[in-house]
């Protein structure tokens, strides 16, 4: 890899611009898609590799997609949310904590994390969740969780989870349906949140939530309920 290719690749990663490093395996020649010109077949394959977030081979070229990190929005700067932070970082997620209650969402409780103090509907409008975003609500407070879930259901987020017992969730579903969300829509919400590992402590709850997010992302049978 030439110094020029390396620095351009690093610049794209830093700028969170999706880019595919294409390497001709016979001689090591490289180009960056879509910045550099690629023949149509290679360009199509590189586009597909970026969309699938999966490396691919095309007529002697190795295509290595570099997408921006997956995002995780945590609604509620509660204890379990704090415990999620180091795990999410290790798993490659860029985390934003959304909590309008300034007593909870402090720099001291959430060192080095993006904090958004807006109400969740405004925060979601700013942050624009997409197919590479997971959203978890943790506050138990309908004033905060409901607008977050309302926005989440109107997005393409690949994972939506809500903390709360089965009974709490049934009431929540009724409220979301009153807001106009159909049965299929509310069925997207994973609740009670997380894989059933009988989690008790905050780190255990964090583990069960992150495990479920990974299971959904990777298409594991554990993801279906």
């Amino acid at each position: 890899m030439t110094p020029e290719t390396l620095s351009r690749l690093q610049a794209a990663i830093e700028a969170k611009t999706p880019v595919a490093l294409c390497t001709r395996l016979s001689d090591g020649a490289q180009l960056l898609f879509p910045e550099d010109e690629a023949e149509p077949g290679l360009a199509t394959a590189a586009e597909a590799a970026l969309a699938a977030d999966k490396a691919a081979n095309h007529e002697g070229w190795f295509i290595h997609p570099h997408n921006p990190p997956l995002r995780l929005f945590i609604v509620g700067a509660v204890h379990a949310g704090q415990a999620i932070l180091p795990m999410a970082a290790a798993l490659g997620y860029a985390v934003t904590v959304i909590d309008p209650r300034s007593a909870f969402a402090t720099e001291e409780r959430l060192p080095g994390v993006d904090i958004n103090h807006e109400w969740p509907d405004d925060a979601m409008a700013q942050l624009k969740p997409d197919t590479r975003t997971a959203i978890v609500t943790l506050t138990h407070d309908p004033k905060i969780d409901d607008p977050a879930l309302d926005a989440a259901l109107r997005s393409q987020a690949f994972y939506i989870g809500a903390l709360g017992s089965t009974r709490t969730h049934a009431k929540r579903v009724a409220r979301l349906q009153e807001m106009g969300h159909g049965e299929d829509a509310v069925a997207r919400i994973h609740a009670p949140v997380g894989l059933d590992i009988r989690a008790v402590t905050a780190p255990e709850i964090a583990l069960s939530i992150m495990a479920e997010i990974v299971a959904v992302r990777r298409g594991s049978r554990l993801a279906s309920r």
Binding site: M1, T2, T23, L25, G28
Partner: peptide, 9 residues
């Protein structure tokens, strides 16, 4: 598996 090895920079 196949592994491609290259010098960096």
């Amino acid at each position: 598996l196949k592994v491609f090895v290259e010098k960096l920079g």
